[in-house]
Simulated scan of single mutants.
Amino acid sequence: MIAAVEVNGPVVIDAPDVTLRDSKVLACNADAIVAIRAGRPADGYNADRTRVKNNLLGCSGSPEERADRGVSDVYGSAKGLVISGNNIWNVSNGITVENDGLVQGNFIHDLGHRPGDHHSGLSTHGGASNVIFDMNTVLLSQEAVSAPIVVYSDFASARNVSVSRNLVSGGSYCFYGGDTGAFAPAEGHIRFVNNRLSLVYGREGHCGLYGELTAFSPDHPDEFGNNVWDHDLRSPFP
């Protein structure tokens, strides 16, 4: 366990069953503030079951110096990750996970924007399986961003992803629903339920610049329900 430390520079986790908690990690101009590497045993990378909990993860510099990611499953192969209770700022993307991961109770805000950036708060990028995004707060602006929460199928189809009880704002859309990328459509069981959409940073009537939801197919065994505006609990969806 690594606990109650202050680090100026990125943290790289290669071993299994490591916990980083109650610490402050500042890393500018880094690929990831916390890089979790697994799936390449020949290189000694086997960071399954990593826990990243209750940390301050950011960059103290200008947006031009921001880190690319707050917490990153670098090779998309780490299993059993728990990323919870972290305060993440001045990054391009907040948290990326792919396999058997729980991402819960994180606060992602004040992303560092460079020209050409397409930001996301919480993301999967291909082959996501058994991922839970629950009770996170993701506050984005609308400056060249994708969405607070994105499920992409860039490298393989997503399946069994649950997005629940999150508070989100900003973005081109509030959510990307898995049917996008080279391996779309998603394989199914993509759930967006009980989320709240904030008008803070959003254009009037929308959490996202172009709408609330995109790349989501009701033809799969997916679920989308009880997602409401935070200020009056009305649903923006038919």
Results as ranks from 00 to 15, higher is better:
Gly9Val: 01
Ile13Val: 13
Ala15His: 14
Asp17Ser: 14
Val18Lys: 09
Thr19Cys: 11
Thr19Ala: 15
Thr19Phe: 05
Arg21Cys: 01
Ser23Glu: 04
Cys28Gln: 08
Asn29Lys: 15
Ala32Glu: 05
Ile33Cys: 04
Ile33Val: 14
Ile33Phe: 01
Ile36Lys: 00
Ile36Ser: 00
Gly44Val: 04
Gly44Met: 10
Arg49Tyr: 07
Val52Trp: 00
Asn54Tyr: 08
Leu57Ile: 02
Gly58Cys: 05
Gly61Lys: 02
Gly70Leu: 06
Val71Met: 03
Ser72Trp: 12
Asp73Gly: 00
Gly76Gln: 01
Gly80Thr: 04
Val82Gln: 09
Ser84Met: 13
Asn86Met: 06
Gly94Lys: 03
Gly94Asp: 02
Thr96Trp: 00
Thr96Pro: 00
Thr96Leu: 06
Val97Arg: 02
Asn99Gly: 05
Leu102Ser: 12
Val103Ser: 02
Gln104Asn: 14
Gly105His: 06
Asn106Trp: 03
Phe107Thr: 13
Ile108Glu: 06
His118Lys: 12
Leu122Cys: 07
Leu122Asn: 00
His125Cys: 04
Gly127Asp: 05
Asn130Gln: 06
Phe133His: 03
Val138Asn: 02
Leu139Ala: 10
Gln142Met: 09
Val145Gln: 07
Ile149Glu: 03
Val150His: 01
Val151Met: 04
Ser153His: 04
Phe155Pro: 04
Ala158Gly: 13
Arg159Lys: 15
Asn160Ser: 13
Arg165Leu: 09
Leu167Thr: 12
Gly171Cys: 09
Cys174Trp: 00
Phe175Ser: 01
Gly178Val: 03
Phe183Arg: 15
Arg191Met: 15
Asn194Gln: 12
Asn195Glu: 08
Leu197Thr: 00
Leu199Met: 12
Tyr201Val: 05
His206Ile: 09
Leu209Asp: 10
Leu209Arg: 14
Glu212Met: 10
Leu213Thr: 04
Pro221Phe: 08
Asp222Glu: 02
Glu223Gly: 05
Asn226Pro: 06
Val228Ala: 11
